[in-house]
Design a protein around this nucleic acid. Structure first.
Ligand SMILES: [Zn+2]
Ligand SMILES: [Zn+2]
Ligand SMILES: [Zn+2]
Ligand SMILES: [Zn+2]
Lengths: 177, 177
DNA sequence: GGATAATTGTTACATTATTACATTAGTTAT
DNA sequence: ATAACTAATGTAATAATGTAACAATTATCC
């Protein structure tokens, strides 16, 4: 876990993504084992679609990829497994794109993160910072609000996309996955 | 503008919503005038659907209400007007619910707000606080990220919903709209 | 009043997500 | 082993949300 990032920002295009992937699979095995659920071949195959990159991917994109790999499944099947992976903290849902991306961080119970979405390369980075939680907690307490779910998403341009193409839209270097 | 709220939190169930509504329509006229666009009957009627409450309402709910009021329109028509109202800062989109709610605040250019969503009564409140912006700006600068769009939404229970029913789900008192 | 742009209509379709019920595959207890 | 039970996946249909392409209408300007 946690090769590639300077602190907790964007993964570099050239990082060793195979390590991201392996670490994530290991984590999944642990989490499934803890919850006494089975990481079935189908579940792993779907999880692996999401693990091919640091991008978010739609449910129907998963169906397409699965079909191309010879396994046709119905939407409901994908959604069921997406829900499960989501509940286990292995993936997150991007509300801004109706899409799902893998969480490569450790603390799978930690809901205090901000999703940064680069519209140039599609990469999602998660920022974790205690200050954010503190501010939110303070404001909500003042408003008498009891928080249950938090969605923090920011769309924009990552450093490399801003630096290269003037307006973003660097075509993406495919990861070595 | 800005009757009803202690600071900038939830409107009380008994507040004078007619004033919210009138202020909002006034604001709309100003904004439309400034942008040299016309607040047509259709646009106003759609805007008024959203202005009936502090709740978020789906695009197809608007279609239903319009039909019940004798005007049947196509989805695309609603979406066009929703986009326009959104661009003008009169309404906001709730990503967590694929729904739209009226912004009753003044500064229509201010994107620095948090949407609090009560799952009990459906009310949306917007919190504005400079600390949030500062934290986000600092974190994004550190990550080399150029922000273009920000979505901050929190779902939970407002004070009155928490206090009344043990677990929320107070059936909603219809506003006097 | 005809040119022009803004607004709304019409039709068809794309994308995302869920409901209800049936079947298959594992696990557990006799 | 097998019956009973639970977990996992399949099947079929449909709901909910959002867009594209092009036509018709309405307001505005000269
Ligand atoms: Zn990686
Ligand atoms: Zn990028
Ligand atoms: Zn009100
Ligand atoms: Zn409430």
């Amino acid at each position: 876990m946690c090769n590639k990032r300077s602190n907790n920002a964007f993964p570099t295009p050239g990082h060793n993504h195979k390590q991201c992937l392996n670490d994530a699979i290991d984590k999944a095995r642990k989490v499934f084992s803890l919850r006494k659920l089975r990481l079935t071949p189908l579940r792993e195959q779907i999880y692996r679609q999401i693990l091919t990159s640091h991008d978010a991917i739609g449910a129907y994109d998963i169906l397409d990829r699965m079909r191309r790999q010879g396994r046709e499944i119905a939407p409901i099947t994908a959604y069921r497994i997406l829900d499960l992976l989501h509940d286990m903290g292995l993936i997150h849902r991007l509300e801004l794109q109706n899409a799902y991306y893998a969480c490569y961080r450790d603390h799978e119970d930690d809901k205090n993160f901000i999703a940064l979405i680069c519209r140039g390369c599609g990469t999602i980075a998660e920022l974790v910072d205690r200050k954010v939680s503190r501010v939110f907690e303070a404001l909500e307490k003042e408003a008498g609000f009891t928080e249950e779910k938090r969605v923090l998403e920011v769309q924009g341009l990552c450093r490399s996309c801003r630096d290269s193409r003037k307006g973003g839209n660097s075509e993406k270097e495919p990861l070595n996955a």
